[in-house]
């Protein structure tokens, strides 16, 4: 069972995660039809920028984060922004009923000058996330765990970050046992997705370079 402390922490993170949303004026543009490659590129850039802002708001609510060394806070956010963005879009793309928004977003991504070699791993990842049928608790915990990774570059006090991440891993592990008694590997599978997520840092920087060249 969860301890009281674990229940409170999970509820707190779930509450913060429910507010982790891109403002409507940005998403509304995603639904507009006009979409040349340039417009798609600008729209994706604006969406990514807006995502970083809401990611910081979510992260500020992670217990203990604001007590960390200020430069370590920046190192964690810089190190996880791309991964959190792809995990967040995977959540949207893996909804059982593809909504108008995800269809339009997929169309924009496929027609924005991004090279095919980066689109394939992206949608493979979205599919592998979708297969896990993750709940809001799993997405919120996995996002927090991704952000609070002690091994990001330029981090000075790794132990302090590990002390914040460890309780979240324990809650996620317990949550998986409670909710997936039939699938003892579920927790390991979730962590496996984090490894796959790390490859997007490399893809993303190449993608930006290819965009600049185009």
């Amino acid at each position: 069972e969860f301890t009281q402390k674990q229940q409170d922490l999970l509820r707190h993170i779930l509450d913060a995660f429910s507010k982790y949303r891109i403002p409507q004026e940005v998403t509304r543009k995603l639904l507009q039809q006009r979409s040349s490659a340039e417009e798609n590129f600008l729209l994706l850039t604006e969406t990514a920028t807006s995502h970083v802002q809401v990611l910081v708001e979510f992260t500020k609510k992670l217990p203990g984060f604001q007590m960390l060394d200020h430069e370590d806070q920046i190192a964690l956010l810089k190190g996880s922004a791309v991964e959190a963005m792809f995990l967040r879009s995977a959540q949207m793309f893996s909804r059982r009923i593809p909504c108008q928004q995800s269809e339009l977003l997929e169309d924009r991504i496929r027609h924005s000058g991004i090279a095919e070699e980066y689109i394939i791993p992206m949608f493979n990842f979205y599919r592998s996330i979708g297969e896990l049928k993750m709940t809001q608790e799993e997405y919120s915990l996995l996002t927090a765990i991704t952000i609070l990774s002690p091994d990001r570059s330029f981090v000075k006090n790794r132990e302090a970050i590990d002390r914040l991440q460890e309780p979240l891993l324990e809650i996620l592990q317990k949550y998986c046992k409670l909710n997936h008694p039939d699938d003892p590997q579920h927790f390991a599978r979730l962590l496996g997705r984090l490894t796959e997520l790390r490859t997007f840092n490399h893809h993303h920087s190449n993608m930006l370079m290819s965009w600049r060249i185009n």
């Binding site: 403002p23 600008l42 604006e46 920028t49 970083v52 802002q53 920046i74 810089k78 922004a81």
Partner: peptide, 22 residues
């Protein structure tokens, strides 16, 4: 939108200080 040409770190620093324009 000025944020487009601000680097990732600038956006993070600004948001951390809670002064980004919503």
């Amino acid at each position: 939108h000025s944020a487009n040409n601000m680097g990732l770190e600038d956006i993070i620093r600004k948001a951390l200080m809670g002064t980004y324009d919503d």
